[in-house]
Amino acid sequence: MEDNDIITEFEQRNEDALSHTTEKYGKTIHKIAENILGNTHDADEIRNDALMKLWSTIPPQHPRSLFAYIAVIVRNIAYDKCRADKRKKRYGEQVQIALDEFSECIPSDFDVEGHTDSRQLSSEIQAFLGTLPQSSRIIFLQRYWAMMPVADIAEKYGINVNTVKTTLRRTREKLRIHLAKEGFYE
């Protein structure tokens, strides 16, 4: 079923939209949530919450890409849930691993809580992503945006695990250099 058809169902308040969304993107939703949360049970809850969010926001929203829309929703909800569960430290393992990797790119003295610096850094990262070849960008975002394990990335795209690791390492290096050129390192 095409995205537009599903969106139309949402707009017509047709509950079939939910099953069609689940049918088409259920696994993706679940996977993103599971990677962030680290467990299947919570991921199931996120799926329901995400569907609820879809139901309540379409209309008036009319996403250009249903996948992108729901992926952002799922990711946000999953992080919200983790944040709420912070005392239990219930971030998924992949988040912690990815965090360690990603932190390599960020200057050690960077004021991550500073509004201006954070905004600047975020902008630079976005600019950097635009300079990457598509394949590298996909791998980078699958890893650090969707929190997909390296092995899963390799399997999904039919490439060698080491290729994924190398690409990620290279991308991180490039990001460091990019940030250095933009003045984020002294």
């Binding site: 996948f67 988040v95 990815a98 850094l121």
Partner: peptide, 23 residues
């Protein structure tokens, strides 16, 4: 630095839709 998962998330929060579509 005090990078947290939330901050890491925020760093990539607003990537363009077409990049997400690529996934």
């Amino acid at each position: 630095n005090k990078m947290t998962p939330e901050i890491m998330k925020a760093m990539l929060d607003d990537i363009p839709q077409n990049y997400i579509d690529e996934l």
